[in-house]
Amino acid sequence: MALSNLQGRVAWIFERADFDIDEIVGVKNIKIQDVEKLADMAMREFEPEFHAQVQPGDLLVGNHNFGYGHPHYPPMIAMRHLGIAGVIAESFAPGYWRGEVAMGFPQVCCPGILDAVDRWDRVEVDWTAGIVRNLTRGSSLPFEPLAEADRQMLEAGGLIGYLHARARAEQDIEATS
């Protein structure tokens, strides 16, 4: 099963390097588990109209070392609930990366992305070609290939699906050998 390309608008650009994603919902809300409440709080400090503007399939763009600090899961749970389909950043902090890939949430490490997009540009992540296309500008930029396990995990929709898929693949190998 190949990954479907992502296509959507750049709903927001986090320009700060080492961005702490907990700020998306606000640190004081980080223990809230109700997804509706989380989604309601998301991005209020950045763009009060975000909820009205965002559409399913939209993407976020980040700077270097996106997700640095001590990332928790609620901010991106909120973002997915609002329709965000993935994050493209100059680079990622590994703890954040691991956590979100395990949730099946596509993350794309694309050096140069900050200069390559403006907010609301329509972009496409082409997994096969390994490029991010800016459909608005007509430009493209290569992204760093996914590690094998990460690719399989995104294809399987997250960690649980990935582990099941691998177990099935191993059974198939045993059955045919």
Binding site: R98, M103, A147, E148, A149, L159, I160
Partner: peptide, 19 residues
Amino acid sequence: MGIRRHLLEAFVNERIQMQ
């Protein structure tokens, strides 16, 4: 190594896939 939720893999499989 701290591997966040991937730790599940180590509970259900003998080996973990990694780079």
